[in-house]
Amino acid sequence: KNAAKIVNEALNQGITLFVSDNKLKYKTNRDSIPSELLEEWKQHKQELIDFLTQLES
């Protein structure tokens, strides 16, 4: 999976991924984040940080 797909899947579940101080963060109104999503974010962390940083610049 690529970073764009992961970010879109998160958005579809009401979760916004973003970068703050070079760290991957998220915002959501959900009570909890599915563990498989958290695991996927960890596996692709640097790719996600790079992707989101490019989007914001």
Rank of each mutant, 00 (worst) to 15 (best):
residue 1 K to E: 09
residue 1 K to Q: 09
residue 1 K to R: 08
residue 2 N to Y: 08
residue 2 N to T: 14
residue 2 N to I: 12
residue 2 N to V: 13
residue 2 N to K: 11
residue 2 N to P: 12
residue 3 A to M: 11
residue 3 A to G: 04
residue 3 A to Y: 05
residue 3 A to K: 01
residue 3 A to V: 10
residue 3 A to H: 02
residue 3 A to Q: 03
residue 3 A to I: 11
residue 4 A to C: 08
residue 4 A to D: 07
residue 4 A to L: 08
residue 4 A to Y: 12
residue 4 A to G: 08
residue 5 K to A: 15
residue 5 K to T: 14
residue 5 K to R: 14
residue 5 K to P: 03
residue 5 K to C: 09
residue 5 K to N: 12
residue 5 K to S: 14
residue 5 K to H: 13
residue 5 K to W: 13
residue 5 K to E: 15
residue 6 I to Y: 04
residue 6 I to A: 02
residue 6 I to S: 01
residue 6 I to T: 02
residue 6 I to K: 02
residue 7 V to W: 08
residue 7 V to E: 01
residue 7 V to M: 05
residue 7 V to G: 01
residue 7 V to T: 03
residue 8 N to M: 15
residue 8 N to W: 14
residue 8 N to L: 15
residue 8 N to Y: 13
residue 8 N to Q: 15
residue 9 E to C: 05
residue 9 E to W: 05
residue 9 E to L: 05
residue 9 E to M: 05
residue 9 E to N: 08
residue 9 E to K: 08
residue 9 E to D: 12
residue 9 E to S: 06
residue 10 A to G: 03
residue 10 A to I: 01
residue 10 A to W: 02
residue 10 A to K: 01
residue 10 A to V: 01
residue 10 A to C: 04
residue 11 L to N: 07
residue 11 L to G: 05
residue 11 L to C: 07
residue 11 L to H: 09
residue 12 N to I: 14
residue 12 N to D: 14
residue 12 N to K: 14
residue 12 N to W: 08
residue 13 Q to K: 09
residue 13 Q to T: 04
residue 13 Q to V: 07
residue 13 Q to D: 04
residue 13 Q to E: 08
residue 13 Q to F: 11
residue 14 G to C: 05
residue 14 G to R: 04
residue 14 G to L: 02
residue 14 G to Y: 04
residue 14 G to I: 01
residue 14 G to M: 04
residue 14 G to T: 02
residue 14 G to V: 01
residue 15 I to D: 00
residue 15 I to V: 07
residue 15 I to F: 07
residue 15 I to T: 02
residue 15 I to Q: 01
residue 16 T to M: 11
residue 16 T to H: 14
residue 16 T to C: 09
residue 16 T to L: 13
residue 16 T to W: 10
residue 16 T to F: 10
residue 16 T to Y: 12
residue 16 T to V: 15
residue 16 T to Q: 09
residue 17 L to K: 00
residue 17 L to H: 01
residue 17 L to M: 04
residue 17 L to F: 04
residue 17 L to S: 01
residue 18 F to N: 02
residue 18 F to T: 04
residue 18 F to V: 05
residue 18 F to M: 06
residue 18 F to W: 06
residue 18 F to S: 05
residue 18 F to Y: 15
residue 18 F to D: 02
residue 19 V to N: 02
residue 19 V to R: 02
residue 19 V to C: 04
residue 19 V to H: 03
residue 20 S to F: 11
residue 20 S to W: 09
residue 20 S to R: 10
residue 20 S to D: 13
residue 20 S to Q: 14
residue 20 S to K: 14
residue 20 S to I: 15
residue 20 S to A: 12
residue 21 D to C: 07
residue 21 D to I: 03
residue 21 D to R: 06
residue 22 N to R: 06
residue 22 N to D: 08
residue 22 N to L: 06
residue 22 N to A: 07
residue 23 K to N: 10
residue 23 K to G: 07
residue 23 K to T: 14
residue 23 K to D: 14
residue 24 L to K: 00
residue 24 L to C: 02
residue 24 L to Q: 00
residue 24 L to R: 00
residue 24 L to F: 03
residue 24 L to G: 00
residue 24 L to D: 01
residue 24 L to T: 00
residue 24 L to V: 05
residue 25 K to S: 10
residue 25 K to H: 15
residue 25 K to Q: 14
residue 25 K to E: 12
residue 25 K to Y: 13
residue 26 Y to I: 04
residue 26 Y to C: 05
residue 26 Y to S: 02
residue 26 Y to W: 15
residue 26 Y to A: 05
residue 26 Y to V: 05
residue 26 Y to N: 02
residue 26 Y to D: 01
residue 26 Y to G: 02
residue 27 K to L: 08
residue 27 K to A: 10
residue 27 K to D: 07
residue 27 K to I: 10
residue 27 K to Q: 09
residue 27 K to W: 09
residue 27 K to H: 13
residue 28 T to G: 06
residue 28 T to M: 04
residue 28 T to A: 06
residue 28 T to C: 05
residue 28 T to S: 10
residue 28 T to Q: 02
residue 28 T to L: 03
residue 29 N to L: 13
residue 29 N to Y: 12
residue 29 N to A: 09
residue 29 N to K: 09
residue 29 N to C: 09
residue 29 N to I: 08
residue 29 N to W: 08
residue 29 N to R: 06
residue 29 N to S: 11
residue 30 R to H: 10
residue 30 R to F: 06
residue 30 R to N: 11
residue 30 R to S: 07
residue 30 R to A: 08
residue 30 R to V: 06
residue 31 D to N: 10
residue 31 D to A: 09
residue 31 D to W: 04
residue 31 D to G: 12
residue 31 D to C: 07
residue 31 D to M: 06
residue 31 D to F: 06
residue 32 S to F: 13
residue 32 S to P: 12
residue 32 S to H: 13
residue 33 I to F: 06
residue 33 I to L: 07
residue 33 I to W: 03
residue 33 I to G: 02
residue 34 P to Q: 04
residue 34 P to N: 05
residue 34 P to R: 04
residue 34 P to D: 06
residue 34 P to W: 02
residue 34 P to Y: 03
residue 35 S to A: 15
residue 35 S to N: 14
residue 35 S to P: 15
residue 35 S to D: 12
residue 35 S to M: 14
residue 35 S to G: 10
residue 35 S to C: 10
residue 36 E to A: 12
residue 36 E to R: 09
residue 36 E to H: 13
residue 36 E to S: 12
residue 36 E to C: 07
residue 36 E to K: 09
residue 37 L to E: 01
residue 37 L to M: 14
residue 37 L to Y: 06
residue 37 L to K: 04
residue 37 L to R: 03
residue 37 L to Q: 04
residue 37 L to P: 02
residue 37 L to I: 07
residue 37 L to D: 02
residue 37 L to C: 04
residue 37 L to W: 07
residue 37 L to N: 03
residue 37 L to S: 04
residue 38 L to D: 02
residue 38 L to F: 10
residue 38 L to Y: 08
residue 38 L to E: 07
residue 38 L to W: 08
residue 38 L to V: 09
residue 39 E to D: 14
residue 39 E to F: 07
residue 39 E to G: 06
residue 39 E to C: 06
residue 39 E to P: 03
residue 39 E to H: 08
residue 39 E to S: 09
residue 39 E to K: 09
residue 39 E to A: 10
residue 40 E to R: 10
residue 40 E to M: 12
residue 40 E to D: 11
residue 40 E to C: 10
residue 40 E to G: 04
residue 40 E to Q: 15
residue 40 E to A: 08
residue 41 W to I: 10
residue 41 W to F: 09
residue 41 W to R: 00
residue 41 W to H: 03
residue 41 W to S: 01
residue 41 W to D: 00
residue 41 W to P: 00
residue 41 W to N: 00
residue 42 K to P: 01
residue 42 K to R: 14
residue 42 K to H: 13
residue 42 K to T: 11
residue 42 K to W: 13
residue 42 K to A: 15
residue 42 K to C: 10
residue 43 Q to V: 13
residue 43 Q to E: 15
residue 43 Q to R: 14
residue 43 Q to H: 11
residue 43 Q to P: 02
residue 43 Q to I: 14
residue 44 H to R: 05
residue 44 H to C: 06
residue 44 H to T: 03
residue 44 H to I: 04
residue 44 H to S: 06
residue 45 K to H: 14
residue 45 K to N: 13
residue 45 K to Y: 15
residue 45 K to D: 09
residue 45 K to E: 15
residue 46 Q to N: 11
residue 46 Q to K: 11
residue 46 Q to P: 05
residue 46 Q to D: 14
residue 46 Q to G: 07
residue 46 Q to V: 08
residue 47 E to Q: 09
residue 48 L to F: 01
residue 48 L to Q: 00
residue 48 L to P: 00
residue 48 L to G: 00
residue 48 L to M: 03
residue 48 L to W: 00
residue 48 L to D: 00
residue 48 L to R: 00
residue 49 I to P: 00
residue 49 I to K: 04
residue 49 I to S: 02
residue 49 I to H: 03
residue 49 I to Y: 05
residue 49 I to R: 02
residue 49 I to L: 07
residue 49 I to A: 03
residue 49 I to V: 06
residue 49 I to W: 04
residue 50 D to L: 11
residue 50 D to Q: 12
residue 50 D to N: 11
residue 50 D to Y: 12
residue 51 F to V: 02
residue 51 F to G: 00
residue 51 F to P: 00
residue 51 F to Y: 15
residue 51 F to L: 05
residue 51 F to I: 03
residue 51 F to R: 01
residue 51 F to S: 01
residue 51 F to T: 02
residue 52 L to H: 01
residue 52 L to N: 00
residue 52 L to W: 01
residue 52 L to M: 03
residue 52 L to G: 00
residue 52 L to T: 00
residue 52 L to D: 00
residue 53 T to K: 13
residue 53 T to M: 14
residue 53 T to W: 06
residue 53 T to G: 07
residue 53 T to S: 13
residue 54 Q to A: 15
residue 54 Q to H: 14
residue 54 Q to I: 08
residue 54 Q to L: 09
residue 54 Q to Y: 11
residue 54 Q to T: 12
residue 54 Q to E: 12
residue 54 Q to N: 15
residue 55 L to Q: 14
residue 55 L to M: 10
residue 55 L to A: 11
residue 55 L to V: 11
residue 55 L to T: 12
residue 55 L to D: 09
residue 56 E to W: 06
residue 56 E to R: 03
residue 56 E to A: 13
residue 56 E to N: 15
residue 56 E to K: 06
residue 56 E to S: 14
residue 56 E to G: 14
residue 57 S to I: 12
residue 57 S to D: 12
residue 57 S to E: 13
residue 57 S to G: 14
residue 57 S to L: 13
residue 57 S to F: 13
